[in-house]
Design a protein around this nucleic acid. Sequence first.
DNA 1: GTCTATAGAGGGATAGAC
DNA 2: GTCTATCCCTCTATAGAC
Lengths: 208, 208
Amino acid sequence: MGVRRARAAETELALKEAARRLFVERGYLNTKISDITAAAGRATGSFYDHFAGKEELLAALLADLRGAASAEMRRSEHPRDHDLTDRDQLHDHLAVAWRVMRENLPVVVALHEASLTGGHAPDQAWRSLVTETDMLRDHLEYLRESGHELPGDPILLAAAMGGLLSTLALALLRSPTPAYSDAEVLDTLTTLLLNGLRGAPTDPPSDA
Amino acid sequence: MGVRRARAAETELALKEAARRLFVERGYLNTKISDITAAAGRATGSFYDHFAGKEELLAALLADLRGAASAEMRRSEHPRDHDLTDRDQLHDHLAVAWRVMRENLPVVVALHEASLTGGHAPDQAWRSLVTETDMLRDHLEYLRESGHELPGDPILLAAAMGGLLSTLALALLRSPTPAYSDAEVLDTLTTLLLNGLRGAPTDPPSDA
DNA sequence: GTCTATAGAGGGATAGAC
DNA sequence: GTCTATCCCTCTATAGAC
């Protein structure tokens, strides 16, 4: 690889790193192209030698993420028949989700904000929430098929749990001085959702 | 009231109603001043005879909301000692929250989006999430003081429940063809959270 | 590839006639 | 108060020298 090409790769990396940092600090929508180039110590015009625009940059970050994710997927299997009513398994599941969001926070933030400005479909928010939680839904459906009685429809439950997780992550992980440790958050959510899903000591509905 | 003033009030109302509709359909950030005036059948310039800008319009909508809310508050008391581990009381509580979000969806959507562009504080998202759920936190602290063992810190739990609710509401209520009825959503969430908060049939933590 | 300089689009906000 | 017309600013994106 020649020197020129190496410098170019260096610049592209600097732009990506600057973007990742700024997306967390200021948010995706609030970050201008010129903010990114300035933070990377480059001229504004140089940005367009590497990306067609802010959306393309985000796509590149997302591609990087997928590469890393699929590499990791090969190590830790993720079979459908997890039992989310087992405390350890639920805890592990939540821990993985939390860690993924923490480690890819810039992209999580950016995608979240971009979804607002982006699509114009009226039920877009619901559709993407359902799509993003389809793995969770799969586990819940497995539980139901195993004879476990869930508190409601698996799609709805998965969306609820996913919404809870992403809201908390976006709020807590962006703070430089976190109000709670990861362990505390995970323990709390594990207990809350474990009992919620088990649906154990149920009163009859009041109209019974 | 003279005719001129009546026409003015009419215009202001038309602008507000157009804004409410568009905020739900296209979102707050995606709605331009000229979109609002066009939808209201007015000229762009007229907007500024009533509001200093989009933010002032939102503030006006919020003020209208507060007026209506405080009127309703006087009817239905909201004492601190609700027992959220009672199914009916939890259900009622969730139903009220859900109905408020449904009826004020334009403002909920707008405030949610405005919070992204607006503040620059690093832990802003967490702070506002905590603030918005302080009433819930209050109920949870009451439970704890009553000797009930919660699955975690009341502030964190309140934030989690609030995040769950608002995410679901923003996703489901904006869709013109809702995937679930209000009753179904409320039943599911009531069961999930009821058992979650009761924390009943607990395994010992795995490291015990 | 990177820079400086600038063109161009989009939209917020104002001027002034009616 | 409402309109039409237009200004002006911000930010994206390109041009062209190095």
